[in-house]
Design a binder for these strands. Structure first.
Lengths: 200, 200
DNA sequence: TATATTCACATACGCAGCGTATGTCAATTC
DNA sequence: GAATTGACATACGCTGCGTATGTGAATATA
């Protein structure tokens, strides 16, 4: 029965290291995180790290992949819950703003990720969150609901607006108050992609 | 006569170091740039570096400030040339995005800057740029040309859109092609703040 | 103008941290 | 059950940052 096979134990250590990586990278940032401390906090040594992930960047890539995947899932769920279409897109935007409020996500995925791993669209995770936005925009484009602009460009900039809103809210003295203004401004800008003048 | 005073020589070394910093950071990136090599290439040693800028990050901050200020100035000039107001604002955005084609700006300001100096909106140079945007938007608000949304929020998000567009162009495989799409999408989103549906 | 002081920068040193080369012991294979 | 693999630990070297200390030229002082 519970006889741990070798592959199982290896998977366990991978999970332990990724967990420790999320913590250390979020608290200290990638550059300042010591791999000696990180691995020790997981009850291991750097040997395990280099065996499993090749190098320090390899661990960052694994951590980013895990978080990015979870973000995409949450955004998609929110969009579906709102019924898809334009409402779904706005729900995704709001979700993205809320997700970007998480310091762990800010630091690891939004700041250190692009700096040390390069362009997010080149990541193995393929920036799934962006892909979800692209998919929804494509539907709307097929319905002729939005202006004839490059879909990927729109998706990236929309996500960029949400990101910037989140960063502003996070750094604000009064996050509650700022959040309202940020979401209003987000929806205001987003309305620019609709063909018809938005009512609200 | 050209008897160099001490302050003049010090200013010279600051300029030399910033120049070498721009080169090294652009070519190797901040993390991989060796301060020994950098200072040696300027005919100096690390002593000069730490005396003038405190530490490695201090030099990066100085380099980023110089480049970013020049970017803001160029954007402002373009805005003025376009006659200010809404057209000026759009011209500023376009210029900022176009500047992202420069590899030096891509690497230093758009990637390493945020990673090692933190949130760009906290940079001195970015705050100046933000204030300019707020001023322009306030004029438009007084004229009733834009929707009744918090001005600071709009300004921050508009700048965020331009910055994000620039980042995308910067990381793109085909910057020239991407640039067109990015600018179109930028103007599309920006149109969302206008009260009347934009014609184009 | 001779002496004292400052200060911009060089030199020297310690230490942290990454990556690699090597060792070791348990899990699989034959 | 002997041999082999492989997951991880241990040991080592090297790079590179920051700091403590030294030095000589520019300024201040008398």
């Amino acid at each position: 029965m519970a006889a741990k096979t070798r592959a199982e134990k290896m998977e366990e250590t991978r999970i332990k290291l990724i967990k420790a990586g999320r913590k250390a990278f979020a608290e200290k940032g990638y550059a300042e995180a010591s791999m000696d401390e990180l691995t020790a906090s997981a009850g291991l040594t750097r040997g395990a790290l280099y065996h499993n992930f090749g190098d320090k960047r390899g661990l960052l890539a694994a951590v980013v992949d895990e978080i990015d995947s979870a973000m995409a899932q949450q955004a998609k769920d929110a969009g579906d819950a709102a019924g898809g279409g334009w409402n779904g897109l706005m729900a995704e935007g709001r979700t993205y703003i809320e997700l970007a409020l998480d310091p762990e996500i800010q630091r690891i995925v939004l700041r250190d990720g692009p700096a040390f791993l390069g362009d997010p669209s080149q990541w193995p995770s393929q920036n799934r969150c962006l892909q979800a936005t692209i998919a929804t925009l494509s539907e709307l484009a097929d319905q002729g609901a939005i202006k004839p602009v490059d879909i990927e460009a729109l998706a990236r900039l929309l996500n960029g607006v949400a990101l910037n809103a989140a960063l502003w809210v996070a750094a604000s003295d009064d996050p509650k108050d700022t959040l309202g203004k940020a979401i209003a401004a987000f929806e205001c800008l987003a309305a620019g992609v609709l063909v018809a003048p938005s009512a609200k």
